[in-house]
Nucleic acid binder design. Structure first.
Lengths: 181, 181
DNA sequence: GTCTATACGTGGATAGAC
DNA sequence: GTCTATCCACGTATAGAC
């Protein structure tokens, strides 16, 4: 099995169960690999798997966010495209965010650099759209942070309240959050 | 030791480490009680401890939010008071939220009712302030959800980015979020 | 590269003395 | 009401065969 293929399956386990909940049994099940085989691909065990997962996520954020958010179409249309992608990725608000999962717990101590970088990739890409729309750089950064923070918070409410309406509202308001005062 | 005294210490462990990370060793250390003593107070073990922690949190939310948010002072001043309390409670953005912690992981399956209720206590109290300020009920509810969602999201950014500025901005904007269009 | 088997610590939980 | 001692299952990790 290709390493990337394994990583894709590992992501889901860490996303759903968090770092502590991602047991070797679950990671083994999700990949179809025995525990010993996992150690063949990731000699440092669980910690290396999580690190690989975060590397992969950063890569995918760069591909999946930076490219569409820098396309030559109008800024508002880029944001609508992203909102659509985000809606699909989080299964309309029913899926937790891996970065939030890891950032909240102890795992943040170990993976802080990687979590920070991944968040910044996303925030920077969003801020770039606002800048393209004529927003001043510092303001654009703050609005991009607001957008991410609203997405993250709405995912918590979605899980906690069992209601994805706040998530949908946040996505619908996304162009406004970034481009309007 | 009084049960409530124990619960207060247990809260901190679940808040900091999440449900999986809250091991009996840590719960024992935090309370100063041996494992067997914990089972004397909470016969159903860890699950009962977490349930007690959530009951306690709901109680404290009712006391700590409902009362000040229904005081006879101007709505905007009630919100400023709450912002101050929230800032102190989350240690200026450096402390994770227990509800978010539990809502994101597997624990949400077990404690969903309690998590939902606690969130609703908070949201309802906030919505009440907006209603008192003349906002229509459905709009007030949405704005209250927005306020909570922004607080939760900003706490994730604070941990993930290692920067509490977004949290401070969210708190400063809180009266505006609830009372202005 | 993947497996079976295994080692070793820890987590959750209980028995029973005081 | 708290303790020490103990139990069993599971989590992480490794050895070594194929």
């Amino acid at each position: 099995m290709l390493r990337e293929e394994a990583v894709v399956r590992l992501v889901e386990v860490f996303r759903q169960y968090g770092y502590d909940g991602a047991t070797l049994a679950r990671l083994s099940n999700a990949t179809g690999l025995g525990k010993a085989s996992l150690y063949h691909h990731f000699p440092n065990g669980k910690e290396e798997m999580a690190a690989a997962v975060l590397d992969y996520l950063k890569l995918k954020l760069e591909e999946g966010m930076l490219v569409p958010l820098r396309s030559p179409i109008a800024p508002i249309d880029r944001l609508l495209t992203m909102a659509h992608s985000v809606d699909a990725y989080y299964n309309h608000g029913q899926r937790a965010c891996l970065l939030a999962m890891l950032a909240l717990g102890e795992a943040n101590d170990i993976f802080h650099e990687q979590i920070q970088q991944a968040l910044n990739v996303w925030i920077d890409a969003l801020a770039g759209v606002a800048i393209d729309a004529g927003v001043e750089a510092a303001t654009a950064r703050q609005r991009a942070e607001d957008a991410i923070l609203q997405i993250q918070g709405s995912l918590i409410l979605a899980k906690g309240l069992g209601d994805t309406a706040p998530f949908q509202r946040v996505l619908a308001a996304l162009p406004d959050t970034l481009l309007t005062a």
